[in-house]
């Protein structure tokens, strides 16, 4: 995997930079070790997903995707993402407006709170809703008396997904809008724009790529979330089974082709996300700001 064409960091100053780079054999070795490590830990898992999915041929692959339970899992996953991503999008815009455009007491604390879901185990993210809405939960009796089903139903799955994907849009937008400052909006306001017009015609176009970036990551996580959703869903086939949960059920039934076929769709989603993310970073890097990660 090591390519012989490994060049030094600054090819034009080979002699000058010799003292501040490693010798060629060291560079080749380090690059090889890195590529082998990434090949084993990242590339092989990705390859095996598609290899196992097509292990019994293309026919078996599409047959398992055509299964009624699989199709309902796909529909549910799309539905959950279609509800939770816009919710967190609106929150992200609103929180970024409040935090980036204004100076107020407790701002740093609020920003920390927004990141909170990242440091909570997905299982705990699901558990908190079970404690709240479950039969023994704080609101369990009341919900039962009023015939409202949250747990083991779509609302619970949406809530758990909203919890784990909560920070994604906000954490992309806040640093970006802070960097851009208030100048553009102040100019628009002084020219007679209403606050809403300033937001719609000035702020939104300014942050659109960063916003798309955040939505992309939010969506990938929303469609792929497993732990939190697993706790609140109840795993009812055809009803409360999302795609990742369906992967687990099929896998535990030793239906490898079925499990990996559904997994290949999710892996495809991950690849599309990565490609779009990379394109956004390449073309609009400056407009997305240097806040990578997660």
């Amino acid at each position: 995997m090591a390519d012989p064409e490994i060049k030094s960091y600054e090819p034009h100053h080979e002699s000058r930079s010799a003292a501040v780079t490693e010798s060629r054999p060291v560079r080749v070795t380090l690059t090889t070790v890195t590529l082998v490590f990434l090949g084993i830990f990242l590339l092989l898992p990705l390859i095996i997903v598609f290899k196992e999915a097509f292990a019994k041929g293309v026919g078996a692959y599409f047959q398992s995707l055509g299964d009624a339970d699989t199709r309902s899992a796909i529909r549910l996953t799309l539905l959950v993402a279609a509800i939770s991503v816009p919710l967190n999008l609106v929150f992200g815009l609103s929180a970024a407006w409040a935090i980036a455009k204004f100076e107020f007491k407790g701002k740093a604390f609020l920003t920390t709170l927004i990141d909170l879901p990242f440091s909570v185990s997905p299982v705990i993210s699901g558990l908190v809703y079970v404690l709240l809405f479950g039969a023994q939960g704080l609101l369990g009796e009341w919900l039962k008396a009023h015939g409202i089903q949250i747990l083991f139903a779509v609302p619970g799955i949406v809530l758990a997904t909203v919890f784990v994907t909560f920070p994604f849009v906000a954490r992309e937008l806040i640093p970006l809008m802070q960097e851009q400052g208030n100048g553009d909006e102040e100019a628009a306001l002084s020219l007679g724009a209403s606050g809403w017009q300033a937001f719609w015609h000035v702020t939104l176009p300014n942050v659109k790529w960063g916003l798309l970036y955040g939505v992309l990551l939010c969506n990938a996580r929303a469609m792929g979330e497993f732990g939190a959703v697993s706790v609140v869903s109840g795993h009812i086939r055809g009803l409360t089974n999302t795609m990742p949960l369906h992967v687990e059920i099929l896998y535990n039934e030793y239906n490898a082709v079925g499990a990996f076929a559904v997994a290949s769709l999710l892996a495809g989603l991950a690849l599309v996300t990565l490609v779009l993310k990379t394109l956004l970073e390449m073309r609009y890097g400056a407009e997305i700001a240097a806040t990578r990660g997660h």
Binding site: L42, P45, I48, V49, G224, F226, V247, L266, L269, L274
Partner: peptide, 20 residues
Amino acid sequence: VDAMVDLPFALPTAVAGIAL
């Protein structure tokens, strides 16, 4: 390779689990 590094962020954990 640089883009690939983000794969664990994007790949659903259940998929990573059964693949590994």
